[in-house]
Structure formats: C-alpha cells, structure tokens
Design a binder for these strands. Sequence first.
DNA 1: GCAAAAGTGTTTAGCTTACACCCATGA
DNA 2: TCATGGGTGTAAGCTAAACACTTTTGC
Lengths: 253, 253
Amino acid sequence: MPYDPSAFPPFAVTVDLVVLTVRRHSLCALVVRRGEPPFQGRWALPGGFVRADEDLAGAAARELVEETGLHALDPSAPAPAGGAHLEQLATYGDPDRDPRMRVVSVAHLALSPDLPAPRAGGDAQGARWAPVEDLLGQEGALAREDEQPALLAFDHARILADGVERARSKIEYSSLATAFCPQEFTVGELRRVYEAVWGVALDPRNFHRKVTGTPGFLVPTGGTTTRQGGRPAQLFRAGGATLLNPPMLRPEV
Amino acid sequence: MPYDPSAFPPFAVTVDLVVLTVRRHSLCALVVRRGEPPFQGRWALPGGFVRADEDLAGAAARELVEETGLHALDPSAPAPAGGAHLEQLATYGDPDRDPRMRVVSVAHLALSPDLPAPRAGGDAQGARWAPVEDLLGQEGALAREDEQPALLAFDHARILADGVERARSKIEYSSLATAFCPQEFTVGELRRVYEAVWGVALDPRNFHRKVTGTPGFLVPTGGTTTRQGGRPAQLFRAGGATLLNPPMLRPEV
DNA sequence: GCAAAAGTGTTTAGCTTACACCCATGA
DNA sequence: TCATGGGTGTAAGCTAAACACTTTTGC
C-alpha cells in the first residue's frame, strides 16, 4: 500500500449534544442559534471542540453544563440526584459536513427533566427548547418530501433524528424514561413521558401494574401529591434497576 | 469563555474493526500482530487512519477489505450476497490511549461468515481468528482480577468487549445472526450461531418453531443438506425482515 | 439396527390486553 | 355533586418453556 501512515491528515474533533426533555406533553430538544457563519442565524445542536487534555465524555459533560447548567449524572451513582443522563450516541465524519475544515463530531445524547429557561453559552446568541416534530418535520418528512429548507445547520437534523430514535427505543427495555422525570414523580407522570416520547396513548391501568410490578424499578417515597388533580398519587423515586425485563411494549402505530 | 475555538487542537482519526465470526462453535475475533512500537509484537484490532477524502464508513469498509478481503454489505441490499455486516460501534478518545499522539478511534463492528485463513494486510505481521474468551479472559476476568497482562494493545480489550456485547444483544431483536451464516444455511446452523455467541444451549424444537414462524425472517430455498448429519435439513436464506418481533429470548445465565 | 439431527404436537405457566369497577380529591 | 386522575380485579388470548414423539438420513 503506497499510503504513509505517519502522514495522517489532521482533523478537528467536536462533541455535539442532543439534549432532550419533555415539556407540555411533547418531546423537545435544545437548540442554539448560530452567531457566525456558516449557517449564521440558523438553529443548531449545542456543541464545541474537544480540548487537548479532555476525554470525549468529559467534553460532552462540560458542554452540557455550559449550555444548560445541568451536571451529567455519574452512571455508577445509585439513584438520580438531580442530574441528567448522558451517553455517547454516534460519530459523524463526512468529509464535507463542515465547509470550513474536516470535522469529526462525536454526538452525545442527554436526557433531562423539564427545566426552566435554557441559558445561552459560548458563541450562541440564544437557546430554546423546540419540539422535535417541528425540527424534524412531522416524522419522516425527509422520506416523503426530500427538499424543504432544513431548519438545522450542518447534518444536525440527522444527528437529532438518531438521538430521538435512540431514546425511543431505549426506554422500552431500560429505566431511562425516569431521566425525564424530577427526582420524585408519580406513575402518571412517568406514563406521560412514555406517551410524549412515543407519541401514543397508553392504558393507565396496565401501565401502573407494569411499572409497580417490576421489582427494583420504582421505589415509593411514602409521599403523595395531587399536582395532577384527581385522587392523590403516590410519589416514587427511580429504583436501582436499569434494565426493564420484560420490556415495555411500544404499541404499533 | 476564554477559549478560542479557532485554535482547536489537531487530532488523528482512525477506524478500528471488531470483526467477529463463529468458528468451531465458538465466537472469534480477528486480531493482527503489531509490527512496530508501541505494543510491538502484541495483538491488536485491525484498523488504520481515516484518509482526508473518505467518510468513516468508507474507511471502515476499506480496512475490512484490506484485512480480510471481505466486502461490506450494502445495508439497503435485499439479501446477503456474500458480504459482511458492518456498522459503527462507538468512539474512543481518551487523551492517553495512544502514547504517540492524540488519536480518536471510531470503532466499527463487522460480522462475517466463517472464512478460510485471514490474510495480513498493511503493517501487520500476521493475522488470526482468536476466541473472544481467550482475548478477554473468560468473561469478566477484568471485573474479578484487575491486573493481568493484557493480551491486546491500547484500549482494544474494551473495544472488543463493547463489540461483543453489541453483537450479543443485537441478535436478540434483529436478524443479525444470519450475518454469521453462509448464504444458505439450516435452522440448526443458525441455532448453533446463537449458542456460540451467547454461550448457552437452546432447545432445538422451540428454536425451530420460533424462527420458521416469524414471517419474513427465513425464506426456504427448496434445497436440503445433510452436512450436519442426521435427517436432511431444509436450506434457508435470510428474509428481508431485519427486526425480530417478538425477540429471541436470551436464557439467563 | 442404531445414533444423530430435523421437525411436530401438546401441555402449562406467565404475560399482555381490554375493560369493568372502585377510590380520593378539588371545584 | 361531578369531573378528574389514581388504582384494583378479572377474563381472554397469545407466547414461551418443557418435553414426548415421529421422521429421515449415515454408518
């Protein structure tokens, strides 16, 4: 092979964040408005360069704090302590994905409870929570009607779609949906998370039996609340179990 | 923020390959012997630098051909045509994972039918198929006994472990196990793939009913074979279905 | 005939679904 | 009192697990 491995081409490496939350019964993603070219004025996923001395997860956690003030949760911690779930999603490195230079972006997925207002950080002029269906065009507009003006800069629509799909499939067989809830939550609130992420309606009775009947999934705190109206509901914290077996079944659309 | 984004640090970007196959009823990975420092003489996963003009999947496919002669399968192709399944696995970028320079490696997972002998390519002195339990030390030796001399260079033991775990979990709910089989195969051969990858024994009767009863999963070719001994078995090709629903259940260990 | 692998049938247990029904609160 | 959401009971239907049994080859 006439290729000299010592003459490797230099790359810029960034982390991009798909930060998801559930607000007003709809799945939303954090987007920032770009303050400089390319794609100036367009919405983009938060992100930034990986520094010379930090690892990828560290860079993602730093960006998360800078953009939202949220601290990433230690995965080995026993129970959610007010932080966000953070995991690596996938890596995007098409040669022309950034017109300025060769950039490889390691995308991460963060799930957070509903937050007040996002704060802009770094070179972003503004930040907001946007429903993913607005950003992606009602689920598969990309397949139906190829060329509409993209809302998101770079290849961020694809990254967001991959992150949403990861979240949708992962709440089936894990306790990840609790990452969208506050520390203490009711079964109904958890069910509304599933309904918002999947875009379906679930039977409240069967859902209740399922999640309370899975050992280690939910731990009752003893308290109750009526913040949703109706009969007082028990409050729960997420239990130690991270795998949901048998899984929650996503109804067919 | 006092950080200048235009002064981003340069990275080398590589692809590393976890190439898995099933040989003699055991899950094996392709490893190459390193011909130069660091880790000279140690085994490593095949891989190499991403070139300036190629995307990540293209670099992985190129390395796969160079190391094995296998062509990656077009994911949109209707049925396996003698190629290998190839997908992105995860990205590894700890600052000190390579002592020479800052390297971010985008690992890919490839699944292939049993092949004759691997051919060495590039700067590798030799290549071989090694049982993953030999490379990783009987499933969780890392957890039991932290410090034994690692067989694999760099952080490749962790990458391999992640790839094996991905394969193990993904054959549960997808038709991926057929990527380990030749173009035409019997139900028993497919079952032995599951048994090798999971390291368990499955009931042949229930397995048969399950895979033949799932519409679109297997397509009979009409032929039969007695290459496994006993009563002649029907030959099948992989059907178009990529998702296995309901999933194959992995017995608890 | 005998061993070995391929298939089929049947029973039982567990789980999902659908839905009737009751409970506890705020307005 | 009524609307609202929380929670329990129950019967029908599907699935997987376990295993007895038949089929078809090679030796």
